[in-house]
Nucleic acid binder design. Sequence first.
DNA 1: CTATATAAGTATCCATGGAAACCATTTTTT
DNA 2: AAAAAATGGTTTCCATGGATACTTATATAG
Lengths: 149, 149
Amino acid sequence: MDNLQLAPIIIGKLLNIGGMLQRHSNRTLLPFGLNHQQFSIFFEIGKAGKVKQKDMVNRLLLEKAHVSKVVKKLHGMELITITASDEDKRSAWLAPTPKGKQILNKLRGVFKKWHKEWIEDVDDKQLNSILENLSHLQAVFEDKLLGNE
Amino acid sequence: MDNLQLAPIIIGKLLNIGGMLQRHSNRTLLPFGLNHQQFSIFFEIGKAGKVKQKDMVNRLLLEKAHVSKVVKKLHGMELITITASDEDKRSAWLAPTPKGKQILNKLRGVFKKWHKEWIEDVDDKQLNSILENLSHLQAVFEDKLLGNE
DNA sequence: CTATATAAGTATCCATGGAAACCATTTTTT
DNA sequence: AAAAAATGGTTTCCATGGATACTTATATAG
């Protein structure tokens, strides 16, 4: 088969899988009042311990307007604290509250459980090959897509 | 490294790549007044030539309410025709208009061009390995995720 | 052959997230 | 040091898409 014919198939599959995963995490997160983007922001804050909004924008490649809204929501849910920064009065530090940390732990458990489930059906060698492939693709797309923005 | 640790990394990459691709196609389709989901529905109609809404729902795994709205939009843009069906008066046949076919062709060209671009950076062997891996993952997730819906 | 269940689409509600304009502060230029 | 540019966040606007209820037509039961 011509290689160029593989391209749309691969893209199609990536979009399809991405969609399935998105819908799945949204459903999983529903009881916690979050969706998968909100969680990814929350998760980053938890991982870093102390960050600013622009860090989220850079790391997750999201719109700053969007991050701003999500931060407000997370704060409203008492999952994070927002403390003014002295160096730069335009921005503030974000950090998880104790309650936030608790919920993060719980969610980590939930996701770990389902990771265990699906990973059973993929053998070890393949797993590494998948990771390698995806890393390469990610780099290629980042290069091609973020270059012309 | 423990295999279970690979799982969240792989999921993360899939979500990340999926997101990038989505945003990219949305931007590409913007001048045509479509987004990537709308295009996928339009594309399916074009491919099939003559279909009903429920076919889209089944093939693309989208909400029927959503498909209904998109169909209305495509019709409003004069990209498809909607003709009443005799066998079943609840549903109607969808088919691309001449104008619709023209636009589909143009879009096929646009996508083909960018497929050519990124595929250059992936060698042939890897391409096949990627396809294989993604097909397997797709099957696994479909099984695990659609089973409990 | 009615009565009930199911199926195909539609209408409505509402949180989401991209885009653009905007504000306040900080940095760079001249 | 004043003017211009850049940066970090916020607000507002609006199309999107998931969820639910509803309408009409078809299929299945009793």
